[in-house]
């Protein structure tokens, strides 16, 4: 039950993030939604590696690790975090160019102006 708490929260966050991505036409909002969605996936992953009453997976000299939580998901999620910040940064750079070309960050408005271009 204790662990399910994280899973439930992660699922709700996932849905919220997806909702922001789908139902907001502002592109900055879409990127924030994407970030929320990603953190939800990370939460599921870390919760899966969590051990009740566990210790952080860091060995200190002279103190044996009795019950470390699983370090493998943490390494993977750290990579995921790096990836998500690079994707966000790249998406924001693209947004800047989109704003320069179209003068707006509204998806519907951009679709309309793209129609005018061609």
């Amino acid at each position: 039950m204790v662990q399910n708490l994280e899973y439930i929260a992660a699922m709700l966050l996932y849905v919220t993030g997806l909702g922001i991505m789908l139902f907001h036409s502002n592109l900055i909002k879409k990127i924030i939604g994407m970030n929320i969605m990603e953190t939800a996936v990370f939460l599921i992953f870390i919760a899966a590696g969590y051990v009740r009453g566990g210790q952080p997976p860091i060995a200190l000299p002279g103190e044996p690790l009795l019950l470390p939580v699983n370090p493998l998901p943490q390494a993977l999620i750290l990579t995921g975090l790096v990836v998500s910040v690079s994707i966000t940064a790249y998406a924001l750079a693209l947004l800047r160019e989109i704003y320069r070309h179209f003068g707006t960050l509204d998806a519907a408005e951009i679709a309309r102006r793209k129609g005018e271009l061609t």
């Binding site: 994280e6 970030n35 953190t39 990370f42 870390i46 919760a47 969590y50 051990v51 566990g54 210790q55 952080p56 997976p57 860091i58 939580v69 943490q74 999620i77 750290l78 975090l81 790096v82 910040v85």
Partner: peptide, 14 residues
């Protein structure tokens, strides 16, 4: 959740 590495990275990045 005993993931201090990620906590640090999340605080600095997010």
């Amino acid at each position: 959740l005993r993931a201090p590495d990620i906590a640090l990275a999340e605080a600095a990045i997010g």
